[in-house]
Simulated scan of single mutants.
Amino acid sequence: MYDMITSPVEYGGLALKNRIIFAPTTLGLGREELVEKLRQIAAGGCAMIILGDVPVGRRGFGPSLYTKKGFAHYQMLTETIHRENCRVCAQLHQSDSNWKAMVKYLPGVLRRKISMEQLRPLLNEAVGPYISGLSARAVRRITDSFGTAAVLAKEAGFDMVQIHGDRMCGSFSSPVFNHRSDAYGGSLQNRARFAVEAVEAVRGRLADMPIDFKLVVRQEEPAYGAAGVTEKELPIFVPLLEAAGVTSFHVTLADHSALGDTIPAADHPCFSGEGCFLKFCDQVRRLTRLPLCGVGGLSSPEFIERQLEDGRITCAAMSRQLIADPEWVNKVQAGAARQIRRCVRCNRECLGGMMHHQGVHCIYERSAAK
């Protein structure tokens, strides 16, 4: 019944057993709980897990590929996921948070007087001055580190890398934050240089590595997102990335604003519908023939099947839905779609759990524990 969902596909040079991908997610869980959560999602039948926020530098938020302990952590995760016949992709990112700003607010975060929701706008205020003040030499050192990190990711067992188009890539791309007057600022071609160099650094070291790019779009009317590129800028931005070596695009709304916008609840004023970000895929599809992965409140097998049949997207990425029911794919394949625990997009225990430093969970987990 769901022939497109369950059909194999080549996604940017990587063979996937079906069309469902676990979207990159900051889970905020302890080691054992994280491993088990990812194992369950992999065992549930999805084709690939994108492991979010893998730092490209030696320092960063999360385990480092450069340390023995950090490398072993990622190697253990890839082995765990591969044992469930699931691919795994490393989302390579460089934070645009100013460390001095982080130190300033760290005591409040540790004492839980500053929530994640409160911290984001405080850190965003420091992004513009931070990236605009980096020397060109420092910028080139950062973009080059994407290539070094990709090599380490491959050695750790990752099948693909994704360049995180938000974070520092997104802040460089946007004039909201980028106030530079050198080769990395001003025109869109210059603002795109950071992202292009990051992709080129990976391609220069790994000629055959599939490179996914998380393409973040800043909506202007009504305004949502602050980083990334506007819809009008896509015709310039997309070809530059494709020429640099990108093999697929993961398309979504730009971040650097309220998390409730990029992870919209069912009552969101603009993004309440299923497939709420797929309109950006429609625009990107007119610019490239590379595979596209769509995301945004996806949960219904019927809806996803139609988008795949129409060629609107190549693959569908889900996070909250696979957290609500890791067995989503297995149930679809077994003809038991009616038994799926549907994500209702309440954001109570997933986004809410992350904002309150409790890790990402689901209302279904809480009800089962009672």
Rank of each mutant, 00 (worst) to 15 (best):
R285T: 14
L322Y: 08
W328P: 02
Q339P: 15
C350N: 06
K279Y: 02
Q339K: 15
H268N: 08
V329Q: 01
A265W: 05
Q321F: 04
S300M: 06
V344S: 10
R286I: 05
A316N: 03
D325T: 09
R345Y: 08
V295P: 15
G296V: 12
C276D: 09
D325A: 12
C315G: 06
R345I: 06
Q333S: 15
I313V: 15
A265V: 03
I323E: 05
E309V: 15
N330L: 08
D310N: 10
G275R: 08
R341F: 02
L287A: 08
L322S: 04
K279W: 05
L308S: 02
G273N: 07
R342A: 11
P326N: 06
S319H: 09
L292P: 14
L322V: 03
W328K: 07
G311I: 08
L290K: 11
E309H: 05
N330Q: 12
L351W: 02
R338W: 04
L292I: 14
E302M: 11
L298N: 00
H268K: 14
D267C: 11
L298K: 00
D282S: 13
V332C: 00
I313D: 02
D325Q: 13
G335R: 15
N330T: 12
E302H: 14
C276M: 08
L290G: 02
E349K: 13
M318S: 07
P301R: 09
R342S: 13
S319K: 07
V295I: 12
A334S: 07
L322R: 09
P301T: 06
A317E: 00
P264N: 06
E305R: 00
F303S: 11
I263G: 01
A316P: 01
C346Q: 03
L287W: 08
T288S: 15
F303L: 09
V332P: 00
C293D: 11
C350R: 04
L351Q: 06
F271R: 01
E274Y: 01
A317V: 00
P326A: 14
C281L: 15
A336F: 09
F280K: 11
A334P: 02
D325Y: 11
V329N: 01
C270D: 09
T314D: 13
A266V: 11
L308T: 08
R341T: 08
K331T: 01
C276H: 05
K279A: 13
P326D: 14
A265M: 11
R289H: 13
A266M: 09
A337G: 09
F303W: 08
F277G: 07
E305A: 04
R320G: 07
Q283I: 14
C276Y: 06
